[in-house]
Structures are given as structure tokens and as C-alpha cells.
Amino acid sequence: MPCDPQVRTGTVELTSENYDRIQEAADRGQNLWRLDPVRTAQVVGSAVLGLRPTDVYTLVEQYYDPGSGLQHAVVRVQHGRCTYLVELYQPRRQGRGGIWVVHAVTEL
């Protein structure tokens, strides 16, 4: 039984997210939280994944995956008595200035 049935776990596919449009908006100075994996986990997590803005979000690691050529990040979320890992990646631009999107949520 899941720790919190309201939290969506597994691979995350948000079909409403257009990565090109999100990247262009960030390039124009809009939604700059998308440039930070912790803030992206917090905003997207509380908007659509069942997490809360008041949960504790901590960057665990950030790494480059040579297989995909993409930057990845892992954010740990303390959600009440439950702990989750939110995996993110940069789909359009790598490194500074690239947006982050949520790829998966795993309950620990």
C-alpha cells in the first residue's frame, strides 16, 4: 500500500507540457523556476503530482547521462512521514539556462 495514495508515482508524462514553449518562456524571463530542479519539483509536484509546496525539497544529485546526452537531477521530498525521489531532466538545453521537467517519482 502506498505511503500517500494522493501522490502520483512512477514515470510522469505531462502531455500538456510543450517543452519548446516552456524553454522559450524561460528564455524571455518567464517561469524562471523552471531553471532550478528543486523549484521545478516543488511547483510541478504540488500542482499535479500530489506533493505539497510546504514539503521539504532537497537536491540529492545532478549528473550528466552520456547515453542520452541529457542533464539529470534527483530531488528528495519529505512529505509528512513519507519520502519520495523526484527525477528530472533537461529536455531542450543542457546546463545553465535549460528548463527542467519531471521524469519520475519514486517512493522510498
Rank of each mutant, 00 (worst) to 15 (best):
Y64R: 13
R92L: 13
L51W: 02
D65C: 12
H79S: 12
G69V: 13
Y89P: 08
Y64H: 14
V77R: 01
T106Y: 09
G69L: 13
R76Y: 04
A73L: 03
E61P: 00
L85S: 12
Q78T: 15
H79M: 01
P66A: 11
V60S: 03
G97S: 05
G95A: 05
P53G: 04
V105P: 00
G50N: 00
V75S: 01
Q90Y: 06
D55S: 04
G67S: 12
Y57K: 07
V105K: 00
G97I: 07
P66N: 15
Q62K: 05
L88D: 14
V105H: 00
R93V: 15
P91M: 12
G98T: 07
G95S: 12
V102C: 00
R76M: 12
G80A: 01
V74K: 12
V74T: 15
Y64E: 13
T106I: 15
L70A: 06
L51N: 15
G97F: 14
E61V: 03
H103Q: 14
V60R: 15
Y89T: 13
Q78I: 07
P91A: 14
I99D: 09
R92F: 01
P66S: 05
V105A: 09
R92G: 10
Q62H: 15
Y57H: 03
R52S: 14
Q78C: 13
G80C: 06
Q94M: 14
T58M: 09
R52W: 05
T83D: 03
Q94T: 10
L85V: 04
H103F: 05
T54R: 09
R76P: 11
A73V: 08
A73R: 01
G98E: 06
G97W: 08
G95L: 09
W100F: 15
A104L: 04
V75M: 06
Y57P: 13
T106F: 08
G95N: 13
V77Y: 02
Y64T: 02
G95C: 10
R92H: 08
V48I: 14
V48T: 03
V60N: 04
G67Q: 07
H72M: 04
C82G: 04
R93Y: 05
Q90K: 00
A73E: 03
E87W: 02
I99Q: 06
W100Q: 04
R92Q: 05
D55V: 11
E87V: 09
R81I: 07
Q62I: 11
V56R: 07
V101R: 02
R93S: 07
R92W: 04
A73S: 09
W100N: 11
G98A: 13
W100V: 07
Q94A: 09
T54E: 08
H72L: 05
V75D: 07
V48M: 08
A47S: 11
S68W: 11
Q90H: 08
V86C: 00
V102Q: 02
P66I: 05
T54V: 11
H79W: 00
R96N: 04
G80T: 02
P53F: 07
Q90I: 11
L51S: 10
R92C: 12
R52Q: 03
W100L: 06
A73P: 07
Q62Y: 02
G97A: 10
G95T: 14
I99Y: 03
